[in-house]
Design a protein around this nucleic acid. Structure first.
Lengths: 253, 253
DNA sequence: TAGTGGTCTAGACCACTAC
DNA sequence: TAGTGGTCTAGACCACTAC
């Protein structure tokens, strides 16, 4: 620790030391108590704690206390259905449809889906759960012409399997762009994380046979609970694109 | 906007609206001015701004003001040398060696490198730059036996090329784990970002011919300036591993 | 009811910039 | 020197929990 370090930094360091000697799930001393003991304002103590919350080291529960968090879970980035991925890891996948809409026009998404701007599009948002715990929030856009008769009730099982079996659309590969975003209040409520908590925002265009675009999706994963795993291969040339930063928001609020 | 939203949220929303009408590089009104105008404490205004800073929408400069930020840049996740990647995109790559050490024992990294725990290891940390601007902070571990005679001065050019040409070690594939971490003060100084700014933390094990592990590395990229691009392939089965969360820190401080 | 975290305030003082 | 962002404080009041 350097002398020039800020009080927040020094406090965070003390918190880290404290936490490393504690077991998962155990309760930290209260904010007021630690602030008094370490001679800092409660706000300073809280700012230090904020950083450990974002990183996933501790969890705060309103009215109850602050606890040492569980380890993160790894999310493989293979082009695999969420359901299969979860089952492979011994977890029970489920999903809750938060929104289901038919849009008269694809708008911005038309270009990505490679359809005429005036073609209709189906957009739906699902909360993905593993063993009942919210994992990710996923919004999908698909050309309405590709999925005739699709209804909200169809989406409780695997979307990939549905595409393959009913619509003969087989997703083979994809391109993803990963960004860090902060949870809006709505997203935080659904994912049961802190408002303004750090999220992975993964934008994926998926391709089927003959390179056709099948769907386009935006997934949000909690950064405090998950890591992403990916295989790296040589020379997969990917076009670099400059992107306007965004605050988060999978779907339009 | 809902009535139940917090003041920070409401303020962030007003800031977003303000920013969307402004051009890249232009100056926002000062914190004191906006706080007065919107009837919030300066700390509240700052907390709202904090979120836009993390997301990369605005940049603060001490003593100068707050500015609308430039768009993010995409980082391809192919297993490609940093130098080649940058050159392909018309940027001049360079790197500065921040630390270079020979360790008598590999310690924790021995297991990843698949060498006996008592074998010596070379560890070095480089700051990667594109057109002179810091992009990432990269720490690499490699078995000393694989790189006899390696010296700090060798590392200004491409590490992959050096491995291939001098040591006949060709890196072909890799496995990466991506996490969100917050910059320590040291990392923030090197990357010229905010202390506690959000970073991508990418841990990579690289493999050569016959699946041998060649090196192990931890890269930190600024989350406010970069996004990651990756190709997704079907059925790349990746073992899921539970991981203890960490605050950041590529290398031991 | 007592204790916890969540939000917000009004102000002090510092460090840096531009002149 | 005036104006900007950076840090920290001491306290108020709210919302939630556990009893």
């Amino acid at each position: 620790m350097q002398a020039s370090y800020s009080k927040v930094s020094a406090t965070r360091a003390r918190l880290l030391q404290l936490i490393h000697s504690m077991d998962t799930g155990t309760t930290l001393p209260s904010e007021r108590e630690l602030a008094r003991e370490w001679n800092v304002a409660r706000m300073t103590l809280r700012r230090a704690t904020d950083e450990l919350v974002v990183t996933g080291l501790v969890v705060r529960e309103h009215g109850r206390g602050t606890f040492v968090a569980r380890p993160k879970m790894a999310q493989p980035m293979a082009m695999q259905s969420f359901s299969d991925g979860m089952r492979e890891r011994g977890l029970r996948p489920s999903s809750r449809v938060v929104e289901f809409r038919r849009l008269r026009r694809g708008g911005v998404q038309s270009r990505v889906l490679r359809i005429p701007a005036n073609d209709p599009v189906v957009r739906f948002t699902r909360l993905r759960l593993a063993d009942g715990e919210p994992i990710g929030l996923e919004t999908t856009w698909v050309a309405a012409g590709r999925v005739p008769g699709l209804q909200q009730g169809d989406l409780t099982a695997s979307w990939y399997e549905l595409l393959a079996e009913r619509y003969d659309s087989h997703i083979l590969t994809g391109t993803s762009v990963i960004e860090i975003a902060l949870a809006t209040e709505r997203e935080a409520r659904l994912l049961e994380c802190e408002p303004a908590g750090a999220l992975f925002r993964i934008e994926t265009t998926s391709y089927g046979q003959t390179g056709r675009v099948v769907d386009f999706g935006v997934d949000l994963f909690r950064g405090d609970r998950y890591s992403l795993m990916t295989e790296r291969l040589p020379g997969l040339a990917v076009r670099a694109v400059a992107r306007r930063p965004r605050l988060s928001s999978a779907a339009p609020a």
